Computed example of a mutant assay.
Amino acid sequence: MPDAAKRAADWKDWAYRTALGAVVLWGMNWLGSKIDTLSGLPAKVNQLVVDQGKLTVAVDDIKKAQTGFATGADVQTLTGRVDTLTGRVDGMEATVNSLVKPVPKR
């Protein structure tokens, strides 16, 4: 019986070592993929810096091109003035209609 116990222990040891080896290989593969991903980050960061610089220049160009055009605040002010004038015209319409003699329809 001691021989059977040794074979059982050897089999368990082999299974344990095989599983442990598989886990270690999987972990090394995972770590390698992370290192590969991280090694590409500096190039991506540099590209983001370049893209951000281009975007800043484009925004500055757009601001220069829009010089002289109304801003959002100007449009709001103008809309308010038009609304005020429309109200005044609506208010004077009745007065004007009462002063002007209607033209007879032919």
Rank of each mutant, 00 (worst) to 15 (best):
L38Q: 10
Q52K: 08
P104T: 10
V75M: 09
P42Y: 01
V82K: 02
D61H: 12
D60M: 08
V45P: 01
Y16P: 00
N97F: 04
A19F: 03
D61V: 05
T71C: 06
V50R: 07
L38W: 11
V59E: 14
A15D: 05
Q47L: 12
P104H: 05
W14N: 11
A8N: 14
D36T: 10
R88P: 00
E93S: 15
Q52S: 10
M92N: 15
K12Q: 13
A65L: 09
L85Y: 10
K64F: 02
D51M: 05
V57M: 07
K64E: 03
W26K: 11
V103E: 04
V59S: 07
V49P: 00
K6P: 00
A19D: 12
P102D: 09
G53M: 01
V23Q: 15
G53W: 00
D90E: 15
D3W: 07
Q66F: 07
L31K: 03
T84Q: 14
T67C: 04
A58E: 13
T56R: 05
G53K: 01
D36H: 09
D51A: 06
I62D: 13
N97M: 08
V50F: 01
V89Q: 05
A65K: 12
F69V: 08
Q66S: 13
P2Y: 05
G72C: 03
T67A: 14
A9S: 14
G91W: 08
T37V: 02
V50W: 01
V96L: 14
W11R: 15
I62G: 04
D74T: 02
G32K: 01
K44A: 11
K6R: 14
T18A: 11
D60I: 12
M28F: 08
G80P: 01
T71G: 10
R17D: 10
R81L: 14
K44I: 05
T77A: 15
K6D: 09
K63N: 14
G91E: 15
W26N: 11
L20I: 11
P42N: 03
D13Q: 13
P2V: 03
S39K: 12
T77Y: 04
A5S: 06
Q52E: 05
A65S: 13
G72K: 08
P42K: 03
G87C: 04
A65P: 00
V100T: 14
W14T: 10
P42E: 02
T95E: 15
A15E: 07
V96C: 01
P42W: 05
F69D: 07
L85H: 06
G72P: 00
G68L: 01
A5N: 09
G40W: 04
A5H: 08
V100R: 04
